[in-house]
Design a binder for these strands. Sequence first.
DNA 1: ATGGTGGAAAGTCCA
Length: 262
Amino acid sequence: MRLATWNINSIRARTDRALAFLERADVDVLALQETKVKDEAFPRERFAELGYEVVTSGFSQWNGVAIASRVGIEDVEVGFPGMPTWGDPAAAEARAIGATCGGVRVWSLYVPNGREIDDPHFAYKLQWLAALREAAAGWLEADPQAQVALVGDWNIAPLDTDVWDMGFFAGRTHVTPAEREAFAAIAEAGYTEVSRVHVPAEHTYTYWDYQQLRFPKNMGMRIDLTYASPALAARVTGVTIERNERKGKQPSDHVPVVLDIA
DNA sequence: ATGGTGGAAAGTCCA
């Protein structure tokens, strides 16, 4: 099975790109982030034409996550237990959706950006990650053999070598010890970030800002990451970061990360 | 091509 994650930065602006990628890379399950579309406007018919069923969590033009699968899609959960809210305490943001596809519990995750270190959004980001850690730890405690994938845009660069220049990030989010500790806590709960295992090369990025010619200059960040439970990590035989998807007409600012699962 | 981000309930907010 091949499982991919991709912050698509608007599924409507890049439907053709997403579908072409599914076919070219022979992907069975695709976790999408930043779909930026409400559920009823998701172009699910286009996916259905290629044999993919789609489940979505979208709210207007902000955030939005989805999972497309051609190997079944069951037991859909919108949001994880204990997921914090932002703004309206009665309304969760569209940042997490889970579904079981081909025997794997897939979570498509869009971790809050955090904005600035002194912004309340940064505290929200840390709370969101702590709640995710609690939920993820619980899933493994309930079933140590569970096949769980926690994939998406984590908005955290875990290592200094996951950005082009740490000097640029002084005083900024994505690289702070607090964020990195929150990310590491998922590993402490028993998960393995398998893209690092299979693609250990330093300065291998998954995101390049649209501004300042960041992609031609290869000034990027490695923030799209793939945690797997022990039983699933043991089945991962390879990982591909699809750098070429940043090229061409109207790319997303992120590229897909693909897991090969035996 | 001598510039320079892009997407969206847009005319501003978010990343």
